[in-house]
Amino acid sequence: MFEPKRLARLKWACRRGMLELDVLLLPFVEQAFDELTYKDQETFERLLTSDDPDLYAWFMGHQKCEDPELAAMVSTVVNRVKV
């Protein structure tokens, strides 16, 4: 489990300034992040280090992420937020 400061930084990193990303990332952290394994939590944290245009393209399905772990996390976020 992430310590409170690290989780707060993670939530701040979800605020991207692009509405399409904001409506995916922050709700995912608030609703599903605690259910992830620690490894998946770290993968999500790494995903947030990606550039906004890349994140947008991956989440909208315009491009496929070449990193298999990040691609799996993108799929997890999209599937979770759609529900």
Results as ranks from 00 to 15, higher is better:
52 D>W: 00
34 D>I: 10
13 A>K: 08
3 E>C: 02
38 Y>F: 12
5 K>T: 14
60 M>K: 14
57 A>H: 11
51 D>T: 10
74 V>C: 13
40 D>C: 01
54 D>E: 12
25 L>T: 05
36 L>Q: 09
32 A>S: 14
6 R>G: 00
11 K>C: 04
36 L>V: 07
69 E>Q: 10
6 R>W: 00
17 G>S: 11
9 R>D: 00
29 V>F: 02
10 L>T: 00
60 M>S: 15
9 R>I: 00
19 L>G: 06
28 F>D: 05
40 D>V: 01
36 L>D: 11
53 P>R: 05
72 A>Y: 02
41 Q>D: 01
38 Y>I: 03
18 M>H: 11
45 E>A: 15
11 K>N: 02
42 E>M: 15
11 K>Q: 14
64 K>I: 08
7 L>F: 01
2 F>K: 00
15 R>F: 05
15 R>Y: 04
7 L>N: 00
10 L>P: 01
80 R>C: 10
36 L>K: 07
23 V>C: 12
25 L>N: 03
70 L>A: 15
26 L>R: 07
16 R>W: 02
74 V>P: 11
14 C>Q: 03
7 L>H: 00
21 L>Q: 10
59 F>E: 09
70 L>P: 08
20 E>M: 08
66 E>A: 14
54 D>K: 10
50 S>L: 15
74 V>T: 09
19 L>F: 12
81 V>T: 13
1 M>P: 07
81 V>F: 04
39 K>T: 14
44 F>D: 03
52 D>A: 12
67 D>I: 06
20 E>G: 10
67 D>G: 03
23 V>T: 14
60 M>Q: 10
66 E>H: 09
30 E>S: 07
44 F>T: 04
11 K>G: 02
31 Q>W: 08
34 D>M: 11
24 L>N: 08
26 L>H: 02
53 P>H: 04
6 R>I: 00
51 D>N: 05
61 G>L: 07
21 L>N: 06
6 R>T: 00
33 F>M: 12
63 Q>V: 06
64 K>C: 08
83 V>Q: 15
81 V>Q: 14
76 T>I: 14
44 F>H: 02
25 L>Q: 05
81 V>I: 15
59 F>I: 09
4 P>T: 04
2 F>A: 01
29 V>Y: 02
76 T>D: 04
11 K>A: 06
19 L>T: 10
82 K>Q: 13
33 F>G: 03
66 E>P: 01
32 A>I: 03
26 L>V: 03
63 Q>M: 13
80 R>T: 15
1 M>A: 09
15 R>S: 09
54 D>S: 12
28 F>P: 02
47 L>G: 12
52 D>G: 01
14 C>T: 03
66 E>M: 10
77 V>H: 12
58 W>H: 06
73 M>W: 06
9 R>W: 00
76 T>K: 15
30 E>C: 07
15 R>K: 14
35 E>N: 10
4 P>K: 03
51 D>S: 09
78 V>A: 11
58 W>E: 05
1 M>I: 03
14 C>W: 04
72 A>P: 08
45 E>H: 07
19 L>C: 04
27 P>T: 04
72 A>V: 06
59 F>L: 10
9 R>L: 01
4 P>L: 09
